[in-house]
Design a protein around this nucleic acid. Structure first.
Length: 717
DNA sequence: AAGGCAAATGTTTTT
DNA sequence: CATTTGCCTT
C-alpha cells in the first residue's frame, strides 16, 4: 500500500500529527482543521507504515455518529475493515468490556442498560421505598446528583456524610439507587464507565492484558472527557501505551455535564514527553468568519491559544439584524432563506442555530408561513420514544424474564387490568424475597384476587408463548410477533389524533431497523445484540436525509457540523450568554466557546440576528445585543437596515376605524427615535389613540419604557 | 382506565 | 405562554 495516499493530502502539521510515533501526542485541532482526517490517517499510518496490528489499536469517540464515521473512513482508506480494532464510544467500549467480563465485573450476564428515563423511574421508586419527599427534593435533582458523582468516579460509599440536609438526602437516595440497580441487574450510562474502570482496578491481570494489547490509543474530542473517562484512559495506557489525544479547548461546551477541560493540561502533566501539535489552518470558512471567531474567543482568559487562518478570501461580511421582536427576527431569516433558494441553492445548506430549544417555535412558524421545508434536531430520538421502548421491553423480556425494568414497563401496556395496587404488591413481594417481579408474579398467583391473577397469568402465557431467540425466526419476525401478539401495535394505533398513526409508523420503522440490523459477532443471538445496540444508540434523530430541508438545531448539537449559510439567532444578552451563566466567569467562558462553535459552523455566509423584544415564558423581555457581537470587529459586520414600513404583526394590530393621528406613519415599529433625556431607542409597540396614544420604546441605555406620545417629543431618526 | 383539570415549570445533551 | 405532570374524578 502506498504511503503517499496517507500523507499527500495533509498539510505539514497534520503530517506531523499523523507520522510522529515516538511520543504521546496532543493535537489541538481548531474548528474545521481536519481533525478526523488526522485521526483516520494516523491509524492508517500506524497499520500500513509502522506495521502496527489493528488488534493493538483502540480509538474512542463520544458519539455513535463520530465512531461510525471514523470506522467508515478507516475502511475507505485501508480498503478493508479491520475487525480486531476497537473503535467506539466510551460507553460502547465500556459496555463491550463489561459484556465480556460480566462475572469479574460483578454483573449478571444479562445486565441491562438504563437510559435517562429508566433511570429517573427507578429513582422515583427508590424515593417511594425510602419515603423521601419528592416535592422537597425533586427526583431530577437526585438524578443530576448521582450522574454528577459517577462522572467524578464517586460511589455512595466514597461520599462523606455532612450536616447539609440536601446532601444527606441525596446520599441516602444514591445508596438506595445503587442497591436497586444491583438487584435489577441494571446499569446506567455513568455506571458503564465507572464499572469498566473498577473492573481494571480490581482485576490487575485483565488490566495487564488490555495494556499489553492496546499499544495505541486514540481519543477524539478530548476536551469533552470527564474525570472517570480520563482515569480509564490513563489506566489503560499504563506505562507502555501510546496515546494520541485530539481536541480543541475552544470547543469545550459540555463542562456543565462533567467534561473537564483541564484534562488537556493533565494530559501533558501525566504523560511524559507529550508532543503538542496545533492545527490552525481552517478549510471550512471564509476569512471574515474566521476573524470574527478569533476575535470572540480571544477574550477568554483560560486558553491554550490558537489562531485559525485560511488561504481563502475574506468573503462576505457578517450581517447583523435587529428584529423588533422574535417574530420579526424569524420572518427576516425565512425571507433570506427564500432569497437563497431563489438563486438556486439547496435548503440543506442552511443551518439555523439557537441557544435553547424554546426558540425553535417561532422560527418554525415563520418557515411554515413561507412554505420552507425544515428539519428540526433535538427532542426525542428514535429509541427513546414510548412505543419503541415498549416494543423493546417485550424483546427484553423474551431474553430475560427477570428484567424488572422491562416487566414494569409492559405488564400493563397495553392495559390488561393490572393496576397500581397489584403492581405494588408484586414489588413488595419481590423486594422482600429478593426475587424478580416475574418470579413474584408467579408466587402471588394463588393469593391475588381472581381478576388480577387472571390478567397476570395471561400475561405470563403471552410472554411464554412468544417465539424465542432459538425459534429459527429472524430478528424482524421475532419483533413483529412480539408487537402484534402482545397487542402493542393495536394499542398504539388506537391512540387518538395523529399520535396513533405516528406511533404505528415508528413501530414499522423499528421492524425496518430489525431487518437492516447486522450482528457483530456470532456468539450471541441477533436479538440480544439488537437490544443492546438500541440501549446505547439513541438512533438518528431523523432518518430521511434525502429531502432538501433547512436544518434547525441548538448550538450544542451543531458542533461538528458545517453549513454554507448559517443563521445564529437570538444573540441577545440573557439568552446568549444565557442568564444562568453570566455570573460565574467559568460558565461565561463556556458560553463564549459556544459562540465560537456557532460562528465556525458557517462556511460562506453568516447572519447574526437578535430581537429587541422577546416573549419568553409569557413575559416580555428587552435584551441588548449579546456582548459577543460587540467583540466582533466592526469592519467584519454590516448592520442590515430595517426596511421602512415593516408590516405590523397581527397581534399588535389595533381595531380598525376611527381617525388615525398619524403616529403610525411618523413612527413605525422598529423605527429609531431620539428622546431628549433617554437618548436613542427603537419603537416596539403602540397603544391607544389621540391624546392617550402611548408608544413603547426600547432605549439603548435605559431599557424599555412606555411614553405618552404628546409629551414625549420623540424625534424620528 | 381514561379523561379532565390545576399546578408546576421552563438552558445546553450524549451515552 | 405553553407544555408537561400529577392528581382527581367519573
Amino acid at each position: 500500500m502506498n504511503v503517499t495516499a496517507i500523507i499527500d493530502p495533509l498539510n505539514p502539521p497534520q503530517r506531523e500529527a499523523v507520522t510522529n510515533t515516538d511520543s504521546h501526542l496532543l493535537v489541538l485541532a481548531g474548528a474545521g482543521s481536519g481533525k478526523t482526517r488526522v485521526l483516520v490517517h494516523r491509524i492508517a499510518w500506524l497499520v500500513q507504515v509502522e506495521g502496527v496490528s489493528p488488534h493493538e489499536i483502540l480509538a474512542v469517540t463520544f458519539t455513535n455518529k463520530a465512531s461510525r464515521e471514523m470506522r467508515e473512513r478507516i475502511y475507505a482508506l485501508l480498503g478493508s475493515a479491520p475487525r480486531s480494532m476497537w473503535v467506539g464510544t466510551f460507553h460502547g467500549l465500556a459496555h463491550r468490556l463489561l459484556k465480556m467480563h460480566w462475572q469479574e465485573a460483578g454483573l449478571s450476564e444479562t445486565f441491562q442498560v438504563l437510559d435517562a428515563e429508566d433511570q429517573l423511574r427507578l429513582i422515583k421508586r427508590v424515593y417511594n421505598n425510602l419515603g423521601v419527599d419528592g416535592d422537597r427534593w425533586p427526583p431530577r435533582q437526585a438524578q443530576w446528583f448521582i450522574n454528577g458523582q459517577k462522572d467524578e468516579g464517586l460511589r455512595a460509599r466514597h461520599l462523606q456524610q455532612t450536616g447539609d440536609p440536601f446532601a444527606t438526602v441525596m446520599l441516602q437516595v444514591y445508596r438506595g439507587y445503587e442497591e436497586a440497580c444491583d438487584r435489577a441487574g441494571a446499569v446506567d450510562f455513568g455506571e458503564l464507565l465507572l464499572r469498566a474502570h473498577e473492573l481494571w482496578l480490581n482485576k490487575p491481570d485483565l488490566l495487564k492484558y488490555y495494556q499489553q494489547r492496546f499499544r495505541h490509543i486514540l481519543v477524539d474530542e478530548f476536551q469533552d472527557t470527564n474525570a472517570i473517562q480520563y482515569a480509564w484512559l490513563r489506566m489503560l495506557a499504563g506505562d507502555s501505551g501510546w496515546v494520541t489525544a485530539v481536541g480543541d479547548d475552544d470547543q469545550s461546551i459540555y463542562g456543565w455535564r462533567g467534561a473537564r477541560i483541564e484534562n488537556i493540561q493533565h494530559f501533558t502533566r501525566d504523560f511524559p514527553g507529550v508532543q503538542t501539535i496545533k492545527l490552525e489552518q481552517n478549510y471550512r470558512s471564509t476569512g471574515v468568519i474566521l476573524k470574527a471567531a478569533n476575535a470572540v474567543i480571544a477574550r477568554n482568559a483560560e486558553r491554550l491559544g490558537k489562531n485559525l487562518w485560511t488561504e481563502e478570501d475574506d468573503g462576505e461580511v457578517i450581517s447583523l439584524y435587529a428584529g423588533f421582536n422574535e417574530q420579526d427576527e424569524a420572518r427576516f431569516i425565512a425571507e433570506r432563506i427564500k432569497d437563497w433558494e431563489s438563486i438556486g441553492n439547496l435548503r440543506s445548506e442552511v443551518g439555523i442555530l439557537y441557544r435553547s430549544n424554546a426558540q425553535s417555535r417561532v422560527l418554525e412558524e415563520a418557515l411554515l408561513r413561507l412554505q420552507i421545508p425544515y428539519r428540526i434536531y433535538g427532542g426525542h430520538r428514535f429509541y427513546e420514544r414510548a412505543e419503541i421502548k415498549n416494543a423493546l421491553a417485550y424483546l427484553r423480556l423474551l431474553i430475560n424474564r427477570h428484567d424488572d425494568t422491562a416487566f414494569e414497563r409492559v405488564i400493563n401496556t397495553p392495559t390488561r387490568g393490572i393496576g397500581d395496587k397489584t403492581l405494588q404488591r408484586l414489588r413488595d413481594t419481590a423486594r422482600a424475597a429478593e426475587i424478580s417481579l416475574w418470579q413474584a408474579a408467579e408466587t402471588l398467583l394463588s393469593e391475588l384476587p381472581a381478576r388480577a391473577a387472571g390478567a397476570i397469568s395471561s400475561f405470563r402465557d403471552l410472554i411464554n408463548g412468544l417465539p424465542t431467540e432459538d425459534s429459527g425466526l429472524c430478528l424482524h419476525e421475532l419483533a413483529e410477533r412480539a408487537i402484534t401478539v402482545s397487542g402493542l401495535l393495536d394499542f398504539h394505533s388506537r391512540e387518538k389524533g395523529e399520535r396513533g398513526q405516528t406511533r404505528v409508523e415508528n413501530l414499522g420503522e423499528l421492524l425496518n431497523a430489525c431487518r437492516g440490523f447486522e450482528p457483530e459477532d456470532h456468539e450471541q443471538s441477533a436479538l440480544r445484540q439488537f437490544v443492546d445496540a438500541a440501549a446505547l444508540d439513541a438512533g438518528d434523530r431523523q432518518a430521511d436525509s434525502d429531502d432538501d430541508a433547512i436544518q434547525l438545531m441548538t448550538l450544542h448539537s451543531a458542533k461538528g457540523l458545517e453549513f454554507p449559510l448559517v443563521f445564529m439567532s437570538g444573540v441577545e444578552e440573557n439568552l446568549f450568554p444565557h442568564k444562568m451563566s453570566v455570573e460565574e466567569p467559568g460558565r461565561l467562558e463556556e458560553e463564549r466557546r459556544l459562540c465560537y462553535v456557532g460562528i465556525t459552523r458557517a462556511m460562506k455566509k453568516l447572519y447574526i440576528t437578535f430581537a429587541e423584544a422577546r416573549q419568553l415564558y409569557g413575559k416580555e423581555n428587552f435584551n441588548p445585543v449579546s456582548r459577543f457581537v460587540r467583540d466582533i470587529p466592526g469592519q467584519l459586520l454590516e448592520e442590515v437596515r430595517l426596511s421602512t414600513g415593516v408590516s405590523r404583526p397581527t397581534s399588535y394590530a389595533k381595531p380598525s376605524g376611527g381617525t388615525n393621528d398619524g403616529t403610525e406613519n411618523e413612527f413605525g415599529l422598529g423605527q429609531r427615535v431620539l428622546h431628549h433625556i433617554f437618548g436613542e431607542g427603537m419603537v416596539l409597540n403602540f397603544e391607544g389613540r389621540g391624546a392617550q396614544a402611548r408608544v413603547q420604546v426600547n432605549f439603548d441605555n435605559e431599557g424599555a419604557k412606555w411614553l405618552v406620545l404628546q409629551y414625549a417629543k420623540l424625534r424620528a431618526m
